[in-house]
């Protein structure tokens, strides 16, 4: 049911952990739906992601999506990281079953929420975060329903 890449990231997740005094921290999901993702960022003065860590409560694909997303943005600029889409996460994982697409959405959202936190703390503005609400409830599941139909 899962690709080898998913299983690899689930078995040997990259960048698990926390960052003390993180530049930004974001958490999305809730216990009710069974997935929570938290991402910590360390961003330097040139707005480059120097370090990134995650903690995830959820299924195999939620762990794998968090893991690969952290790899995909490590060393990138904040601007570049904001371009990351859930589809890129799915593709990088070699695909996810339809009912698990929401895990990739969570990874994208968790990263955005962490950058949002950084932007708030440092008084920075990113047009990519326009309209982004880190506390939005369960948006990713509506998307899942739609995708799940196919």
């Amino acid at each position: 049911m899962y690709s080898e890449i998913v299983m690899d990231h689930f078995t040997n997740p990259r960048n698990v952990g926390e960052i003390e005094n993180a530049s930004g921290m974001g958490e999305v999901g809730n216990v009710k739906c069974g997935d929570i993702m938290r991402i910590y960022l360390k961003i330097n003065n040139d707005e480059i992601i120097e370090d990134i860590k995650f903690k995830t409560f959820g299924c195999g694909s939620a762990v794998a999506a968090s893991s690969i997303a952290t790899e995909m943005v490590m060393g990138k600029s904040v601007k570049e990281a904001l371009q990351l889409t859930n589809k890129q996460v799915v593709d990088a994982l070699g695909g996810l079953p339809p009912v698990k697409i929401h895990c990739s959405v969570l990874a994208e959202q968790a990263l955005k929420a962490a950058i949002y936190d950084y932007a708030q703390k440092t008084n920075k503005y990113y047009e990519e975060l326009e309209g982004f609400d880190p506390d939005a409830e369960d948006d990713h599941h509506d998307l899942v329903e739609e995708i799940g139909e196919f």
Partner: peptide, 8 residues
């Protein structure tokens, strides 16, 4: 558990 934000 070590990977879980709830545990942390």
């Amino acid at each position: 558990r070590k990977m879980s934000p709830l545990y942390e």
